[in-house]
Amino acid sequence: MKKLIALLAIIAAMLAVTASGAFTSITAERDATISVSGDGEALLALAPTTTVNGAYFVDSDGDGAYELRISDAQNGLNVDAIIVFEDIFTITNNGTRGVTVTLQDIGAHDDKTDFGDLESGIVLAPGQSTTVSLSIDTYGLSMNDSLIDSIKITAQ
């Protein structure tokens, strides 16, 4: 009988413990702010340089996203030539940890455009920037060939 009472006491104690943690519902509102910024002020900031080649990096439709527009150059690219555009735009890591930034060019002749080390990835510490330059090889291409139609910048 003593054993039984002890057992009952233990069961009662367990019930008491478990019952104390049960809840029907919890609703908690928390501050959680996420904004979208134009490229210039975003987490991964993209901005034209102040050099003459910065003019190739423009937000032509005003949506806050820049576009690389070499095709808008007044005169097209020479065939059979190497054309270099230095210091077109900058990439800045506005995040709080280091990231590896990679630039992938996508198009019919993406082997002809060279963004240097960015294509394999460079490391940017928080607050650090890099300047993007582009070298184009038009040997073997024909007039009106399109080289690339997009670039994809990844930071991870």
Binding site: D31, I34, V36, E41, A42, T96
Partner: peptide, 23 residues
Amino acid sequence: PYASYDDNGALVVELPSGVNVDA
């Protein structure tokens, strides 16, 4: 780095700047 607690111990989510457009 994007979540922390305020002075009351309540969770807060905050970014150092906005996310990019078209990304």
